[in-house]
């Protein structure tokens, strides 16, 4: 550092644009029944209240539009906000829905660059379903330090923790969860609905385990699988816990 630099007045820029990628949960709705949406969303929020509190979220209505089911975007957004979530985008909407979203100050997100608007041309080469593609593309998050009470971890892909996970924690992954240590907190795999996701841990003492929203709490865990290395997976909506 030269001292001369201090002589000339220096005005640092007050702002700067940076490009950044965020991982944001996407809420795909498959019904236009507001009551059902509210009930089911509420149930999800209760599973991981700390995680969902003020969490940003993108609303995906592509499924409904594919089936030509009309949905009241304004009302859905209201439900989402009521449950403490902050919608920051909509995707897969039709022209009218997009307009409503913009009026509410909610930006439009595209699934593929070309598929947001209804009359978009089909991509020339067949591409896999967007959701699967996302899962394949996101990598593995590896954490080597203990997760302490009150902490929360979210991984867009697989989550590998090579340390203990304390009681009073929440670890969430869109893919699989591996804990090479004692798992005492809440572990939720496949949080975006991937029913193939699994949880592996070397010592199960969890407060709650969940795969794609199917969960068991500590009380429901069989005594003989506690304190043992296990894998947990879904077999037709039922959580299976097996010693490994």
């Amino acid at each position: 550092m030269s001292k001369d630099a201090q002589k000339t007045p220096y005005n640092p820029p007050a702002l700067e644009f940076k490009s950044s990628t965020f991982s944001v949960p996407v809420l795909v709705i498959a019904s236009n029944d507001l009551i059902i949406i509210e009930q089911q969303l509420q149930a999800k929020v209760l599973l991981a209240p700390e995680f969902f509190k003020n969490s940003p979220l993108v609303l995906d209505v592509q499924e409904l539009n594919k089936q030509s089911v009309d949905v009241d975007i304004v009302a859905v957004i209201e439900v989402i906000r009521k449950l403490g979530l902050l919608p920051i985008g909509i995707r897969g909407g039709n022209a009218q829905q997009n307009e409503q979203a913009i009026t509410l100050g909610i930006p439009l997100h595209s699934i593929h660059t070309s598929s947001t608007t209804i009359d978009a041309k089909k991509p020339k080469t067949p591409t896999p379903e967007p959701e699967t593609k996302d899962l394949l593309q996101t990598g593995t998050t590896v954490i080597t330090h203990p997760i302490r009470s009150g902490q929360r971890v979210y991984a867009a892909g697989d989550l590998v923790i090579i340390a203990q996970v304390s009681a009073g924690t929440e670890i969430l992954a869109e893919g699989n969860i591996h804990v090479y240590g004692t798992l005492r907190g809440r572990a939720l795999a496949g949080v975006q609905g991937n029913t193939e996701a699994r949880i592996f841990c070397s010592d199960l003492q969890a407060e709650l385990i969940s795969i794609a929203g199917n969960y068991k709490i500590s009380e429901d865990l069989n005594q003989n699988i506690r304190n043992t290395p296990v894998q947990i997976y879904l077999d037709k909506q039922t959580l299976v816990i097996k010693e490994i």
Partner: peptide, 12 residues
């Protein structure tokens, strides 16, 4: 439990 929580805060 409180100590565990404090350790989390210390590390972050």
């Amino acid at each position: 439990r409180d100590s565990d929580r404090m350790l989390g805060i210390l590390s972050s």
